[in-house]
Design a protein around this nucleic acid. Structure first.
Length: 954
RNA sequence: GCGCAGGUAGCUCAGUGGUAGAGCGGUUCGUUUACACCGAAUUGGUCGGGGGUUCAAAUCCCUCCCUGCGCACCA
């Protein structure tokens, strides 16, 4: 078996710093030991691994991505959406960070001082859960076994061990972050910001503590915000049971009311039954009492508008402790709240021993049985309802009454105005509505979490009163009374105080990210924040628009007086090919590192960008990544081809004169004009954050225009005995195109462009890495007269078009792959001036036409008289005949021309009809009408000539 | 229920009033020394249905159908 392994070789072949980048092929023997290369052979495929690694090192060493706060240049900044510190990279990260990398690299090219500030988030619940699980699995311990301090020590250890992973992965992707400024939400300075903000909001009366109905996760044992609850449709049962009126018999023989419920296991907490006051069926019951079966008790029947007459039986059991709506009904009617569940979701009701201690779903089944035994169960039917699940633990949450800290959001109206008035621009713009809708219905934020990993609430209670204070609703007044201490620092006499046990919601730190990463909360502003705040762009997923984006806007406005960013770009959510969300449990989420290993970081970046950025969501298809890799290979090979020509060269590498003074061919002019045009088109595409369009432009230019047309047509210049001057000029044009193109591609594919840039020596003397190149304003066609450019491009376009038509013709005769077919061009009059553009004679056009058409020979002969039946086509260069000795088939040719004529006929009809319509001529834009006229003329001419051809064939 | 986004070629998607596009796939041909991760040709669409506005609609309006997402919910 022969194993090929590539090693970069650095054979200096001349004094121009050009080296052979293309690796030497080594062969391994059966032992796997590499032996002396048998022969040097350039690799046909780009091998990203070594190249990428090398450039990561180079960029790192040169510190070229450091955000220079003292720069004279205009600042540009992005803060990274901090990934979970213990998380690993997924495709969403790849897309999002590629976008940010592009924005930053382009900003550097535009000569801005750029800061891309990286960092990670402590991710309270997620991280704590991970460490707890490990503790349970490996040591069979809970966090309580360790105690708070020891447990936190473990979490920090875990963070130290696993915290760097995602950062390393981002580096592999080529992210040009300023790694020297990496931040973590639990850094000391950052934590100080969190406390500072808490204290400030508390002082403003926006933070308060109270006993409220919250979303409780019975697994994580903490309260959650509304945003952390995911509603999911569930198949469940709707049970109808009956409660007996207490004032009739009370012994099972009196009057009953039927009540529908999905949660019979909470009926021990029922403290009332409610009907709608407008419901004629039940008016007479209101004010009476009814018997709760277990524990048996008489509870009042109340009338409440909230009850839906249509639903179920129109009678609701009111369980104020276990349902948000019931709680409110209870408040309105003075019904007590009886908590019958433990925090971890077990029944807590010693009065009913059959249920006491049972897990909540087990208790539900058991409660139904008991009801049936008591003959109180009327029916049981399948029912679909929506249940809230906890985002992290993925179990149904319990509405639970508990003492928590809440925030009334600050600067809400300003945050609404900023987005509504486009001070902050959302893209795609429809997300604006989603944002405004949420902001306009904003609810207080439950910010306390019963966790240990996070920022501890900076509130202390007087030790002697702590027990009672912890049960009390609190606000700023209580501090003024000296009962509690709220401050960044602990009280001076800590032995007399007890700190609140809870920590803050992770997002309560994340919402400060854009400025808390840049400056300290006390004292003078840092130079960094002065230079780089507010940031320019935020790129993130629409799934965290409420969690993060909206809150950052409020925090920025409130604490810095300025919105934290100008533009928000919401990238699409990546789904699998079947449209499902990527998830670990489905196993449909490819590991980006595998993809990088297989396709290269550049290929991955390019491939994802091609499909991802416009819609709301996008289906991931590995074929796209493959296309990205293929594009890298194409680029590699085109440059390899260019480099191979160095060896053929007699006299130096570039013409002594500037390009504009050389005899540029129409094709030289065309490709140079196109690469310049590409730059303008890219500017527009990126300006509008249309990343997919940008990749399409780059792909189209390089593959179709540069490789398939230009490179294919200049190969003659490198053949034995070709004109040396022309060869040198062609090399110069290729170099100029690459010198212009590679920087344009660089933000998308940074590694391979750097490598080629260096190896081809395109930077010139003293030029640094491509990553540091500022794009100049120089046109590749500077000094070339505008009319020469126009004429050259016109002639090039005609030639390319004609070559395509000849290929079609060949295919019609099943000769597509034949290279020996002779063709004869009878030039049209206006093309008789071959050579007007750039002083190059007809030979250049003829050569290109012949090469691209794949013809064996080309004669230019205005007087050529084709034998009858010779296949020919009409092009903008003239009539092109393909005499096929021995292959001529009059019938076939007649059929072909007839078919073409028919097609042209319908086109003429269409165009005539359009122009015959006076309203069209009247109303349409002048250029549209003019275009239609021209088209008609062209079709008519073509029809005439085709008719003549058909006659000749007859 | 309310809102948002989408329905264009077999697949993934571009295309906002003026000749329906790309990539992938399929088919046929081709290894000519940059590249088979390639080249050439070719196949393939009454642009979700219906109605309207307009000289002209994939594009604007109305309506219906389907898909995805968000918000709110009926116990």
């Amino acid at each position: 078996m022969v194993v090929a392994r590539t090693e970069p070789s650095t054979v200096v072949i001349d004094d121009c710093r050009r080296v052979f980048l293309f690796p030497v092929l080594y062969k391994a023997d059966r032992t796997g030991i590499f032996t002396v290369p048998e022969m040097a052979e350039p690799s046909k495929t780009y091998n990203p691994a070594d190249v990428e690694e090398k450039w990561h090192r180079r960029w790192d060493d040169s510190e070229c991505f450091r955000g220079d706060e003292s720069s004279e240049k205009q600042g540009y900044s992005i803060v990274i959406p901090p990934p979970n510190v213990t998380g690993i990279l997924h495709l969403g990260h790849v897309l999002n960070n590629t976008i940010q990398d592009i924005l930053c690299r382009r900003a550097r090219q535009a000569d801005r001082a750029v800061l891309w500030l990286p960092g990670t988030d402590h991710a309270g619940i997620a991280t704590q859960t991970k460490v707890e699980r490990r503790l349970r699995e490996e040591e069979s311990k809970t966090r309580h076994d360790l105690g708070r301090d020891a447990f936190l020590e473990r979490v920090w250890q875990w963070k130290e061990k696993h915290g760097g992973i995602i950062t390393t992965q981002l580096k592999k992707l080529g992210c040009s972050c300023d790694w020297s400024r990496e931040r973590f939400t639990m850094d000391e300075g950052y934590s100080k910001w969190v406390s500072h903000v808490f204290v400030k909001l508390f002082e403003e009366g926006l933070i308060y503590r109270g006993r409220r109905m919250v979303n409780w996760c019975p697994v994580s044992l903490t309260a959650l915000s509304d945003e952390e609850v995911i509603m999911k449709p569930q198949r469940s049962k709707l049970y109808t049971m009956r409660y007996e009126l207490a004032d009739t018999q009370g012994n099972g023989t009196g009057e009953f009311l039927e009540i529908a419920t999905t949660r019979p296991e909470t009926l021990m907490g029922d403290t009332g039954v409610a009907v709608n006051p407008k419901d004629p069926r039940y008016g007479r019951y209101v004010g009476r009492t009814i018997l709760r079966p277990f524990p048996r008790a008489a509870i009042p029947i109340v009338a409440d508008e909230h009850i839906d007459i249509e639903f179920g039986t129109g009678v609701l059991k009111v369980t104020p402790a276990h349902d948000r709506a019931d709680f409110e009904i209870g408040q309105r009617h003075g019904l007590p709240a009886i908590d019958v569940l433990t925090p971890d979701g077990h029944v807590n009701c010693p009065e009913v021993p059959q249920l006491h201690g049972l897990e909540r779903f087990e208790a539900r089944r058991r409660a139904v049985e008991i009801l049936a035994e008591m003959d109180l169960l009327v029916s049981e039917e399948d029912y679909q309802n929506n249940i809230g699940f906890s985002e992290r633990a993925d179990v149904p949450i319990e509405p639970r009454l508990s003492m928590q800290w809440f925030l009334r959001y600050p600067s809400v109206q300003r945050a609404i105005d900023a987005v509504a008035g486009d001070e902050i621009v959302f893209r795609p713009k429809h997300w604006k509505k989603t944002y405004l809708r949420w902001m306009e219905n904003i609810q207080d934020w439950c910010i306390s979490r019963q966790l240990w990993w996070g920022h501890r609430i900076p509130v202390w209670y007087r030790r002697e009163d702590a027990a009672s204070l912890k049960e009390k609703a609190l606000d700023v007044v209580d501090r003024d009374r000296g009962e509690i201490h709220v401050g960044i620092d602990s009280p001076a006499d800590p032995e007399n105080w007890e700190q609140d046990e809870d920590v803050l919601d992770t997002w309560f730190s994340s919402w400060l990210w854009p400025f808390a990463t840049m400056t300290e909360c006390e004292g003078a502003d840092s130079e960094t924040v002065k230079k780089f705040y507010p940031t320019a762009d935020l790129s993130t997923g629409p799934d965290i628009i409420f969690f993060w984006v909206a809150r950052m806007i409020m925090a920025g406005l409130h604490f810095r007086g300025e919105s934290p960013f100008k533009n928000v770009y919401f990238h699409s959510i990546i789904r699998d090919i079947k449209g499902r969300k990527m998830s670990k449990s489905l196993g449909n989420s490819p590991d980006p590192l595998d993809l990088i290993a297989q396709y290269g970081a550049d290929g991955l970046r390019f491939g994802l960008l091609r499909i991802a950025p416009t819609g709301t969501d996008v289906r991931y298809d590995e074929k796209q990544i493959e296309a990205g890799r293929n594009f890298a290979t194409k680029l590699w090979n085109a440059c390899r081809y260019r480099q191979m020509q160095d060896g053929n060269q007699a006299d130096g590498h570039s013409p002594a004169r500037p390009l504009a003074e050389c005899r540029l061919s129409p094709f030289d002019i065309d490709i140079l004009a196109r690469v310049e045009r590409l730059r303008g088109d890219l500017d527009i595409a990126f300006e509008e954050y249309r990343f997919n369009e940008a990749t399409a432009l780059l792909y189209e230019f390089f593959w179709s225009n540069f490789c398939d047309r230009y490179l294919e047509s200049i190969k003659e210049d490198f053949r034995e005995g070709a004109d040396v001057e022309r060869k040198v000029l062609t090399l110069a044009v290729i170099d100029e195109v690459l010198r212009y193109f590679l920087p344009l591609l660089h933000p998308v594919m940074p590694h391979i462009t750097e490598e080629i840039w260096e190896q081809l020596g395109l930077a010139g003397d003293g030029g640094g890495p491509l990553a540091t190149q500022v794009l100049g304003a120089q046109s590749p066609l500077a000094g070339v007269a505008a009319d020469a450019v126009a004429a050259g491009r016109e002639l090039a376009a005609r030639t390319y078009e004609a070559a395509g038509r000849v290929r079609n013709l060949k295919a019609d005769y099943n000769l597509a792959s034949r290279k020996d077919v002779p063709i004869i061009l009878k030039p049209v009059e206006e093309c008789a001036v071959f050579g007007a553009a750039g002083g190059i004679g007809a030979g250049r056009v003829a050569m290109t036409l012949q090469l691209l058409a794949g013809a064996g020979s080309l004669a230019i002969d205005a007087t050529f008289a084709a034998p009858g039946g010779t296949p020919s086509i009409l092009t903008d260069l003239g009539e092109i005949c393909m005499p096929l000795d021995g292959l001529i088939d009059m019938d076939a040719e007649r059929a072909r021309v007839g078919k073409e004529l028919a097609k042209v006929d319908t086109e003429v009809d269409k165009a005539e009809k359009k122009l015959a319509n006076p309203k069209f001529v009247e109303n349409a834009k002048a250029e549209v009408v003019e275009e239609a006229r021209q088209r008609l003329t062209e079709w008519q001419e073509k029809r005439e000539r085709l008719s003549a051809m058909l006659e000749n064939l007859a």
